[in-house]
Amino acid sequence: MEKQLGSETVKRGMAQMQKGGVIMDVINAEQAKIAEASGAVAVMALERVPSDIRAAGGVARMADPRIVEEVLNAVSIPVMAKARIGHIVEARVLEAMGVDYIDESEVLTPADEEYHILKSAYTVPFVCGCRDLGEAARRIGEGAAMLRTKGEPGTGNIVEAVRHMRKVQAQVRKVVHMNDDELMTEAKLLGAPYEILKQIRAEGKLPVVNFAAGGVATPADAALMMELGADGVFVGSGVFKSENPEKFASAIVQATTYYNDYELIGKLSKELGSAMKGIDISKLPAEERMQERGW
């Protein structure tokens, strides 16, 4: 084979290298360096963390390129950035800037209420959110090289991420045990591409890495998601909205690696200071639920 850039193996492989790690939201070089020093496997460069996006209201867009550039120059670990759902040009701009991974994210205000980006057309890999296997398989069909639960971003409440992770896992298990003649109807019911379901059944698992995201606020939350089968963890507002970001960042990294060492997680959770203030999802009006964005 001649040299090939941006192949499926190269894009999915990049996400495989992040496994067992923590990806942290940062808004400047200083935070990026704290994240890197604490053992983050990547940072997500943003203008605002999700909880501040919620508070600010209005239209949330791709971060100011100056912030993305500042973060790119500050650390040697991979840098991710978010583009609006369906915003082909924001994604191309981030790709041109040299961002290592793009999150086509429901945290930002969608630019297209019908179509997602055709991610297979890009050299840079994409991560997308999902709440169930139908959504996961559609994103893979469009070329996403990595998945994450949507959870409910900026709430510090893990309940939605747990729901989404359990649902995807249960639906994958069901597909894996199906007969040939049942698969097409399942594809129809899930709204999932048939070929992707066939692949999942053949491999016995999703063909891409699936991280947890949307509500991770404590080391125990991160460990819980790993226990439920997540390949790794995104922490949005949880680190830099906590009382002691350095300690929280490091404790979440350690709890992700040693997620079934409960004595250690207990120790890590001592004297951390308070976690970010959380939001009860049932008190969140339907129009403020970011997880409903995406189609």
């Binding site: 084979m1 001649e2 192949s7 190269v10 492989g13 990049m14 991974y101």
Partner: peptide
């Protein structure tokens, strides 16, 4: 370089 420069080759 960065991820966009990642590749496979025989």
């Amino acid at each position: 370089g960065r991820q966009r420069d990642s590749f496979e080759v025989d």
